[in-house]
Design a protein around this nucleic acid. Structure first.
Lengths: 245, 245
DNA sequence: GAGTGGTCTAGACCACCAA
DNA sequence: TGGTGGTCTAGACCACTCA
């Protein structure tokens, strides 16, 4: 039940509590990706608070890109399938500003056990079953990124190479539409490394060429890590763009 | 004058107009870095709007890190001199999470003319006078970043190597305190490159070692570019961390 | 025209801080 | 104790979308 409990030692604003309730409805699947959620007035009625309070909760979720507001239409659950959202986490941009034209070349999809390091990143016990996907992203015919993707097997039961190829490289929208797993944020760690091994070969590079290494962990609702990914990027005519605010 | 002019073709919310007015007071120097600005009630009176509208304008500036709210105290102009703000734009983190312990080794400070490429980035005509600073940042004794910094000479008249050294490497807080120029945001472009020339030498690397190249343009009020910077970073035991939301 | 989000107001009260 | 920001409400009205 909603409770203001001012002056309580564990005081939490009402809108934060509403935010939690909304998030629970998202986790529980009451509203799926792309769905419209009830209007602010309806929600205010449901939770017995004013519209302004619901508004502030929705505002917070909207700035986290979990909900999308559209004036005159309603408020919707964000989805990676929507146009413009497919490359939301891709910061790599060609020098002339292009961000599209990426093509996906599937390499492999295998099952295995997680090792210690990635197990820590994904919060899995060592030895847990995982799925590994390897692929090459090309930009106008030239190899650009060699991706190594690791996800826990359990939530993605039934995923295989065929389905990866079908979805044409958009992993996040596949996670959503086929497994109901929605990624809401990610953390990346970048380093410069020398090309070697599989990656160098797939990218058509000599050994020791510099590569941008991007290690990414993606999180679903509740800040639960669900995907580990290592991208090796050729940055001859692409930049990793980042805005600092 | 404040004007709601609903239904006008160029409708702009009141709080946006207040935000512009606040920004103008910041540019004009009515409130300098670290100063407390008038209370919400005072500002509401000054602009003849309600407190809630002023609030929303301040909220926007606060999320842009231009103002800082402190409950019970007041609202303050953000400053890079404040503790915890000195490394606001530094995304490089040691593998064990450390972010401090950086030491600054001044290399040179010279005057020159801007070239075409950097002139474009800084919105300067080719040939405009500039100041160039080079320095080496070290982390627990090991060279970490070789920085090449370029700023237009005009707004920073009187800047020299001595003053750079005095400020112990905190360029942004020096810009603020000595020249009244406050950086509010920045854009970075990252690539992986092979070490060579001056940078390789300063960092104590052999030729062809991979380096993380970070090109940064920093902007002051009104989105005016005021500093170009190229950092060459050794990422053996440091990562460039980035959160995607 | 009906329904949605977006803006603006006025007022009450709470939490935090300093003197 | 008084001043500051922070929360919450209730209500009016505007802007946008779609049928």
């Amino acid at each position: 039940m909603i409770d203001k409990h001012y002056a309580s030692p564990s005081y939490k604003p009402l809108y934060d509590q509403i935010k939690v309730l909304l998030t629970q409805s998202l986790i529980g699947g009451e509203w799926g990706p792309g769905d419209m959620i009830p209007s602010e007035i309806d929600l205010a009625g449901r939770y017995k608070v004013s519209q302004g309070t619901v508004r502030k909760a929705i505002d917070a979720l909207a700035t986290e890109n979990i909900l999308i507001r559209r004036q005159g239409k309603g408020t919707f659950v964000a989805t990676h399938s929507a146009e413009g959202m497919k490359l939301r986490f891709l910061r790599l941009t060609s020098v002339d500003g292009q961000k599209e034209l990426l093509k996906n070349e599937f390499i492999s999809c295998t099952k295995g056990k997680v090792d210690l390091r990635i197990g820590q990143a994904l919060d899995l016990k060592a030895g847990t079953s995982i799925i590994e996907v390897k692929r090459l992203l090309t930009f106008s015919g030239r190899p650009l990124i060699y991706d190594h993707i690791i996800i826990p097997a359990a939530p993605f039961k039934g995923l295989n190479g065929h389905r990866v190829e079908e979805n044409n490289g958009s992993m996040y929208s596949m996670y959503e539409s086929e497994f109901g797993v929605r990624m809401i944020r990610a953390e990346e760690r970048l380093t410069a490394v020398a090309a070697q091994g599989e990656a160098a070969k797939a990218l058509g590079l000599k050994d020791r060429e510099p590569l941008l290494s991007i290690e990414r962990v993606s999180f679903t609702y509740g800040d639960k890590p669900m995907e580990w990914r290592l991208g090796m990027c050729v940055t001859d005519d692409h930049h990793y763009m980042n805005a600092l605010e």
